[in-house]
Design a protein around this nucleic acid. Sequence first.
DNA 1: CTTGACCCTGTACCATGGTACGGGGTTTAT
DNA 2: ATAAACCCCGTACCATGGTACAGGGTCAAG
Lengths: 137, 137
Amino acid sequence: MTIGQVAKRAEVNIETIRYYERQGLIPSPPRRESGYRQYSGGTVERVRFIKRAQELGFSLKEIAELLSLRVAPDISCSEVKRRAEAKITDIEEKIRTLQKMKEALARLASTCSGRGPTSECPILEALENEEEKDAKE
Amino acid sequence: MTIGQVAKRAEVNIETIRYYERQGLIPSPPRRESGYRQYSGGTVERVRFIKRAQELGFSLKEIAELLSLRVAPDISCSEVKRRAEAKITDIEEKIRTLQKMKEALARLASTCSGRGPTSECPILEALENEEEKDAKE
DNA sequence: CTTGACCCTGTACCATGGTACGGGGTTTAT
DNA sequence: ATAAACCCCGTACCATGGTACAGGGTCAAG
């Protein structure tokens, strides 16, 4: 298979395949005499693994590590589970941060009737004043 | 006030002040003969506004717009409120995405006893297999 | 044969929000 | 005077995950 075929089957950009190769996420395949890469079907599966793991919030670096774990002979499943659970914790933290932002914004928005000039907008005024921030903490 | 004093009082890096000036977020101040920037106290407040807005999830670009709105004579408070509410919507969407990720990860993690070699890890296997993904959608 | 699609490489670019230099001038306190 | 802190500018770099070229070679179908 050529790089274009792999990209098409894995539903990614050709450039992405080359990028992943450069980053070490997929191995450099053998070449034809022309220099064209010659892939087996395993690369499609590997790229799909990468994209699925990305969807779950893993960075490419973390994915590279997962891929290494997959073939490490002395590593146990528990390490994979630990990483999944660590990612869950990460995500929970992010959700908390976002919730705080949302609540602060909602409080601000509720102070504004939506009428009047911006020079007297309570939202903008709150962003300008330090007391407002301290009062929340 | 010098740039160092502004940075210290606003609790940001000197480089950040210069960056904000380059990005148009704060105005270029008058200079001494030496070339040193000479700030009034208003810049400290403005930088604090920027940082507070950032904490609420606004990008610098969005913040620049808020700062423009603040002094626009024909703009009403409702525009500011609209933007705050749009940001809330953004954040809610991000939370939903993160929730989905978390749930998918939790499901995966629950399939793994934490025992056994990684070559037989249900988490990794799920990431490898397309059927698993389709079954969820 | 011809042409269009495909492939290669290396380098640069994008977004975002900074941060770090190098090289040189200025200010301030001792 | 001296030394350290401070400031200036322009340019490059960082992280992350791509994406886009330019310039040139190869392949496959008509």
